[in-house]
Simulated assay, not measured.
Amino acid sequence: MKTWSAWLAALVFAMAVGAVALSPAGVMAQVAAAVGSASPGDAHYVGSAACQTCHQDIFARWSKTRMANVVRDPKQHPDAIIPDLSKPDPLVTFTAKDIAFVYGSAWKQRYFHKVGDDYYPYPVQWDITNRKWAPYHVPDQGGDWWAKFYPDPKGDNSGRPTGPLCDGCHSVDYDIRTKAVAEWNVGCEACHGPGSAHAAHPAQVSILNPARQDYVSANDTCIRCHSQGQPLNNPIAGKFYDWPVGYHAGLKLSDFWRLEDHK
Score class of each variant (00 low, 15 high):
residue 125 Q to V: 07
residue 184 W to M: 13
residue 137 H to M: 02
residue 148 K to M: 07
residue 173 D to G: 04
residue 158 S to F: 08
residue 124 V to H: 09
residue 185 N to P: 12
residue 143 G to M: 09
residue 157 N to K: 02
residue 127 D to K: 06
residue 161 P to V: 02
residue 184 W to K: 00
residue 150 Y to P: 03
residue 182 A to T: 15
residue 186 V to E: 04
residue 127 D to W: 00
residue 127 D to T: 00
residue 147 A to P: 11
residue 171 S to A: 15
residue 142 G to Y: 13
residue 189 E to H: 12
residue 195 G to S: 15
residue 134 A to I: 05
residue 123 P to E: 07
residue 161 P to G: 00
residue 150 Y to N: 06
residue 152 D to K: 00
residue 146 W to D: 11
residue 130 N to K: 14
residue 149 F to K: 12
residue 137 H to V: 09
residue 124 V to Q: 01
residue 129 T to N: 15
residue 184 W to E: 01
residue 137 H to C: 05
residue 135 P to F: 00
residue 163 G to D: 12
residue 185 N to A: 12
residue 193 G to P: 08
residue 136 Y to T: 06
residue 195 G to E: 06
residue 157 N to I: 01
residue 132 K to Q: 14
residue 192 H to G: 08
residue 160 R to Y: 01
residue 185 N to M: 13
residue 170 H to E: 06
residue 137 H to K: 09
residue 178 T to D: 04
residue 155 G to I: 03
residue 167 D to S: 08
residue 187 G to T: 10
residue 176 I to E: 06
residue 126 W to C: 03
residue 153 P to T: 05
residue 132 K to H: 13
residue 149 F to M: 12
residue 191 C to N: 09
residue 151 P to W: 02
residue 140 D to Y: 00
residue 174 Y to S: 11
residue 154 K to F: 10
residue 149 F to H: 15
residue 189 E to L: 14
residue 162 T to Q: 13
residue 135 P to I: 01
residue 184 W to Q: 03
residue 177 R to N: 15
residue 125 Q to F: 02
residue 177 R to C: 12
residue 194 P to I: 07
residue 170 H to F: 07
residue 133 W to R: 14
residue 187 G to N: 05
residue 172 V to P: 07
residue 190 A to P: 05
residue 166 C to E: 03
residue 162 T to P: 03
residue 153 P to V: 08
residue 167 D to V: 14
residue 139 P to M: 13
residue 186 V to T: 12
residue 149 F to L: 13
residue 130 N to I: 06
residue 155 G to M: 02
